[in-house]
């Protein structure tokens, strides 16, 4: 490519500028939200204070008072963390078995798991409400959300772990067998150390998906187990009155996740395309 690169020195500069512009443009709404979160509600809607204003932390300090932020955040953390743990506990053995002891049906099982992910959630909205409210009495509980979040992420988690486990060379496992390692030893001494990175990023991605989920968390909760998605959805139209405080609570809800997301960009591709793009 050296030939092309040398003839286009001008285009290289303009590409750089253009690339930066695109990057900044895409980030701008997030930047704008963060900037607004440091304005008082009154200043936030005044054009003359677009960029020059006295920053204030009040919106963050008053998050509890204005929105009861920490209660919703705690619900988000509880449901996302436990759903992630539960998904991994169920997903790891399953992916392990499929990767190292594949049978003729393994492929079909995997495909079927994926197909459950493609079922539109809305189609089973009422049965879910009916079952959990009238029948099981678990509507608007942490337990329900943890269960549902686990189930909707289980196919992706199994799939991701499967692709990671499959990348571990068979011969290494066989070498372990020759060296006299037990089944449990194989998992502890060889498999977990080798797949550690994959398991960690799978967990991270699963956590992000749980945190951002916005159908079941909105439809299956009212107050007790309501998460940040529900909180934001409930304050959808402040009509300009509360731009500052709404920005603060939004930024607090998405900030940590964006940072976590930066760490698992690569895994995202694998996780969302089910290994079909490499």
């Amino acid at each position: 490519m050296a030939i092309v690169a040398e003839t286009n020195r001008f285009s290289k500069t303009s590409r750089t500028v253009l690339a930066w512009l695109v990057g900044l443009l895409f980030f701008f709404p997030i930047f704008w939200m963060i900037l607004t979160s440091f304005k008082t509600d009154a200043v936030a809607v005044k054009p003359e204070f677009l960029f020059s204003f006295t920053p204030t932390l009040d919106n963050y300090i008053n998050m509890t008072e204005n929105y009861d932020y920490w209660r919703f955040a705690a619900n988000s953390v509880i449901t996302s963390v436990f759903a992630t743990i539960f998904t991994l506990v169920v997903g790891i053995p399953s992916a392990y078995a499929m990767a190292f002891n594949p049978s003729r049906r393994t492929k079909d099982v995997l495909m079927w798991m994926l197909s459950t992910k493609m079922l539109p959630a809305a189609a089973v909205l009422y049965p879910m409400t009916f079952l959990t409210k009238n029948f099981l009495g678990i509507f608007d509980t942490h337990f329900l959300l943890i269960l549902v979040l686990s189930l909707i992420n289980l196919p992706i988690v199994v799939w991701m772990l499967f692709t990671y486990f499959k990348e571990i060379p068979r011969e290494i496992i066989e070498a372990g067998k020759m060296d006299g390692v037990s089944t449990w030893g194989e998992v502890r001494e060889i498999l977990i150390p080798l797949a550690w990175g994959g398991i960690a990023s799978t967990a991270l991605l699963c956590f992000i998906f749980c945190w951002n989920e916005a159908y079941w968390t909105v439809r299956l909760t009212t107050t007790e187990a309501a998460t940040l998605s529900k909180l934001i959805e409930g304050n959808r139209a402040p009509e300009g009155l509360f731009f500052g405080r709404l920005s603060a609570v939004s930024a607090a809800a998405v900030g940590p996740i964006i940072v976590l997301g930066w760490f698992c960009q690569k895994q995202l591709v694998q996780g969302l395309t089910f290994g079909a793009v490499k």
Binding site: E171, I172, E174, A175, G176, K177, M178, V181, E189
Partner: peptide, 27 residues
Amino acid sequence: PSKRGLAMVFQTYALYPHMSVRKNIAF
């Protein structure tokens, strides 16, 4: 396999990538 008293050298060497050479041999 491990009880047959045989040792095997694989085509791809199959070393444990997370262990040092010493630990590999000691395994």
